[in-house]
Design a binder for these strands. Structure first.
Lengths: 337, 337
DNA sequence: CAAGTATGTGGTACCGGTTACACATAAAAT
DNA sequence: ATTTTATGTGTAACCGGTACCACATACTTG
């Protein structure tokens, strides 16, 4: 591999001039430019990114820390992050934290040593102290969805509370009268907000009771167990709003096993809009987050922070959209509540 | 951030000694060791990975180039790769190639500049010339599943032909008599081999005809279209073996739309063993590849090559396993063919 | 007792870039 | 005519490590 000094020698100029040429910083004469071009061509020269990183403390690398890439919510997000990053000339490091603070911290240690330019957090546990520490050390951080908006960094999230309301309204409009909610672990702000939205929407209704709210783990298995518990406790429910799509899938599975018709006897609605919702039978109604857009946005924001184009930390709240599908399709549409 | 020279100064020794201590290379006196430890502690010193990378041409970073992380086959694989990598102290860079040669090459360019230690290819287009070029430049490459085994690098793959035979045999044992195959794009060696396995298994049967082999694109949509075409052409098929799970899901969807019972009228079997197969209705029988194990293995092999523990390029063929589920469950089990 | 070897440490070139600063020249402004 | 200012280029320190080599002791060996 040729180095900048080789190029300098061949072009008959100094390394400084080459560097200036490469970075378009400072003056370079047109003729010199030609000579340099030729030399670079001839030597097949590629500037060494590591050396650049060391000298400039910038590596054009960002990290994406998420709980688990094999959780179906994240691949699309990761794809979006990487698409935007690569568009801007950045490379993406993938980290699976399993939502464990220890792992997160150990990743951060490594990433700092590697002069990573910025971090996207889609993982949970980190408290704002940690984040602040990062940003103070000059490493921009952007958080995604799952972080309480104590403004120590920019945050991209979506309207969970509103989404939950959309779901409940939709179910009501479909004629459902007893709508249960399977909520996710309350450490997740998303789970909390969705639960709150649900509660707000239903608490004034005559059938309302806290026993319609059942805990789940944000995974299929949890959705199954919650649904079993629910149907035992309230055989008369006619709708389940799950705190995320995975649990909704679980609900579907459980109901199918019990021989309960969906949407005939019980309607089911999820939240997130992951691809899976289109392959269940019946297809799953869901409150879709714009997953790809969220990833693209979070990536763009991080890069802007890195490049100094953006200063103020801000919270971006993206709209969610109800995607009505078969799992909530009922004959008596638009019945009055 | 403290540097090695700060530590040296505080400990009253030279940087060389610190370096020796850090890398456990060469001698360091026990007492000196204590002083160094203290100094490191006091300064909260962390060696700079970029500087190390520049000096040692080793970055403890590997790249995973795959077509698209949002293809459900890859998240689990990526997870495995990252798990193993992080266990060995490596960091993983994620690249989505969309199976486009141009993108692959541009990633490779960047990765070389970054002194990446090795590359895992789960992407298609690269020919062995490219791979050879890499390995010659001292960058170890390991290929996954989708690459023709012209031995220019180590390859991890699974037994596609055998898997296809398993699928056909299973369908036959379930009493199916006319088994169609939706094959994937023939640029993919996996698709080719599965097709070959299918053909071998059925060509001696009296109903065999090339018209039972239909082209699909390895995605849900392609599975749907292929199934529609197939059912029009051969309304009498009683089983579909799809070249991958996504197309099997498509088949399921198409059949459901047509009002064809699965497995009653038509049994469906996929290939890959992605998570989706457990959430369809009916659940999908599939020839499961050990996806996580493949990822873990490929990662381990790459790291061994990087660290010189492994020299000879080898091909690892992993076993696949038929996972029988509802989509092929037929009354007349074990009927004779 | 001289030579050889294991132990311990320091000086410094080097990895391959960036960039501050000095210096030179030509054109524009005063 | 002199001072600015814009243009163009080179020298060398620096980023923060690694590792080769020299050198100094303290024991073994022959």
């Amino acid at each position: 591999m040729a180095t900048i000094r080789d190029v300098a020698k061949l072009a008959g100029v100094s390394v400084a001039t080459i560097s200036r040429y490469l970075n378009k910083s400072g003056y370079v004469n047109v003729e010199t430019e030609q000579k340099i071009k030729k030399a670079i061509e001839a030597l097949n020269y590629e500037p060494n990114a590591v050396a650049r990183g060391l000298a400039g403390k910038k590596t054009n690398t960002i990290a994406l820390i998420l709980p688990d890439i094999s959780n179906p919510f994240f691949p699309e997000l990761a794809r979006a992050v990487e698409d935007v990053a690569s568009m801007y000339g950045y490379t993406v490091i993938l980290c699976n934290s399993d939502d464990e603070g220890v792992k997160e911290k150990s990743y951060i240690e490594v990433l700092k040593k590697k002069y990573i330019d910025g971090i996207i957090f889609a993982s949970n546990t980190l408290d704002s102290a940690d984040v602040e520490q990062m940003t103070k050390k000059g490493i921009p951080v952007v958080c995604l969805d799952r972080v309480p908006p104590k403004q120590s960094c920019s945050v991209v999230r979506s309207k969970n509370r509103e989404g939950a309301k959309l779901a409940v309204e939709h179910l009501l409009s479909m004629g459902c009268r007893k709508i249960a909610h399977i909520y996710g672990p309350q450490e997740f702000i998303t789970a909390k907000e969705r639960l709150a939205g649900y509660e707000e929407s239903v608490k004034h209704l005559d059938w309302y009771s806290p026993t319609f709210m059942i805990h789940g783990d944000f995974r299929i298995e949890g959705g199954i167990r919650a649904t079993e518990l629910l149907m035992e406790r309230h055989p008369d429910v006619d709708a389940i709003f799950a705190g995320n799509d995975l649990m909704a899938v679980g609900a579907l599975k459980a109901l199918h096993r019990m021989g309960v018709q969906v949407p005939g006897q019980v309607a089911v609605c999820g939240f997130d809009g992951i691809g899976m919702t289109e392959i269940t039978q019946p297809e799953l109604t869901t409150v879709a987050q714009p997953i790809y857009e969220m990833g693209a946005l979070v990536s763009r924001i991080l890069i802007k922070k890195i490049e100094g184009t953006l200063e103020a930390d801000q919270t971006y709240e993206l709209d969610v959209a109800l995607v009505p599908r078969e799992s909530t399709l009922r004959r008596n549409e638009h019945a009055s509540s």
